[in-house]
Simulated scan of single mutants.
Amino acid sequence: MAAIKTLVLITGGNGGIGFELAVQLLSDASKYVLLGSRSLAKGQAAVKDLQSRKLPGTVELIQVDVSSEDSVVTAAKEVESRHGRLDALVNNAAIGTPPGSLAQQLDQSFRTNATGPAIMVEAFAPLLKKSTGTPRIVNVTSGAGSIATRLDSTSPFYDMGLVRYRASKAALNMITACQSVDYGPLGWKVFAFCPGFTVSNLSEQNTAANGAKPTSEGAAPIVDILNGKRDGEHGGYLHVDGQHPW
Results as ranks from 00 to 15, higher is better:
Ala125Gly: 02
Leu106Phe: 14
Met120Asn: 05
Phe124His: 01
Pro126Ile: 01
Met120Lys: 04
Met120Glu: 03
Arg111Phe: 02
Pro98Met: 07
Gly116Thr: 13
Gln105Pro: 02
Asn113Tyr: 05
Pro98Glu: 09
Lys129Asn: 05
Ser109Phe: 10
Leu128Asn: 02
Gly116Gln: 10
Gln105Ser: 06
Gln108Asp: 14
Lys129Met: 07
Lys129Arg: 13
Ser101Val: 09
Lys129Glu: 11
Leu127Met: 06
Ser109Pro: 07
Ala103Cys: 09
Leu128Phe: 03
Leu106Tyr: 11
Pro126Leu: 01
Leu128Gln: 00
Ala125Tyr: 00
Gln105Leu: 06
Leu102Asn: 10
Gly100Lys: 14
Ala123Ser: 11
Gln108Ala: 15
Pro126Asn: 04
Ser109Thr: 14
Arg111His: 08
Ser101Ile: 08
Gly100Val: 15
Gln108Ile: 14
Gly116Lys: 03
Pro98Tyr: 10
Thr112Lys: 03
Pro126Phe: 00
Gln104Arg: 14
Glu122Arg: 15
Arg111Thr: 15
Asp107Asn: 10
Pro117Met: 09
Met120Leu: 13
Thr112Val: 14
Gln104Met: 12
Ala118Trp: 12
Asn113Thr: 06
Phe110Pro: 03
Lys129Ala: 09
Gln108Leu: 15
Thr97Pro: 04
Leu102Phe: 12
Gln108Gly: 02
Ser101Met: 07
Val121Gly: 01
Leu127Gln: 02
Asn113Lys: 06
Glu122Gly: 01
Glu122Val: 12
Val121Cys: 07
Ala125Phe: 00
Ala118Lys: 07
Phe124Cys: 02
Gln105Ile: 06
Val121Met: 08
Pro99Ser: 12
Arg111Pro: 00
Asp107Phe: 07
Ala123Leu: 06
Ala114Glu: 05
Gln104Cys: 05
Ala118Tyr: 13
Pro126Thr: 01
Pro99Phe: 09
Ala125Cys: 03
Asp107Ser: 12
Phe124Asp: 01
Thr115His: 10
Asp107Ala: 14
